[in-house]
């Protein structure tokens, strides 16, 4: 059993990429944390902002180029040239999402709702929001705030806290 004295009590998770696997890694960890009764704060920055941007959040892709983990169905090699063909990345991404749906892993917006229902908080990085010229209304409605990394660190501390970068 876990040692209660050194147990993780709080996680601050930073997601900087927009690929399905990066975003879902952050979301699964965040949801897992609130389900274990931990405090959890999520910070989306740079391309990770796609996960909390209304227009993009449910259209994430997994890259089919430059992804050495990519395999053909059945496990064979996935040639890089194949990944460059228009539509292939969209198809692969669709398969990824279908695979997750089968495991009862929800779409991004619903997953974020589950996390905030458990007390988790979602923040957007001010620098990245400014850089991509996004407005508050472009972001998912339940984003708790557009803040600096300094603000985020300020709320990330405390006994048994961990900062995780995906």
């Amino acid at each position: 059993m876990a040692n209660k004295d050194i147990a993780v009590k709080k996680v601050a998770i930073i997601c900087a990429k927009a690929s399905i696997e990066d975003v879902y890694a952050a979301l699964v960890m965040a949801n897992g944390a609130v389900m274990e009764g931990m405090e959890c704060k999520l910070f989306f920055t740079f391309f990770g902002l796609d996960a909390i941007t209304k227009k993009q959040m449910n259209k994430l892709h997994t890259p089919t180029v430059g992804n050495p983990g990519m395999r053909m169905p059945g496990g064979g090699a996935f040639p890089t040239w194949l990944g460059t063909i228009p539509g292939v990345e969209a198809g692969v991404s669709k398969m990824m999402m279908k695979g997750m749906e089968e495991l009862d892993i929800p779409p991004v917006d619903e997953f974020l709702e589950m996390i905030t229902a458990g007390g988790g908080e979602v923040y957007a990085c001010k620098l990245a929001v400014d850089m991509f010229k996004l407005k508050k209304e472009d972001l998912w409605d339940d984003v708790s705030g557009v803040i600096t990394i300094g603000d985020f660190y300020a709320m990330a501390g405390g006994d048994g806290s961990q900062v995780i970068f995906t």
Partner: peptide, 27 residues
């Protein structure tokens, strides 16, 4: 069993589950 399925049971939603079973809605 998943928290998502439990939240769609019609008995209560996910927020409700956290209220009923604080700190461990599924466990």
């Amino acid at each position: 069993l998943t928290i998502r399925a439990l939240g769609k049971s019609g008995i209560t939603d996910i927020k409700g589950l956290y209220k009923l079973f604080p700190g461990g809605p599924l466990k």
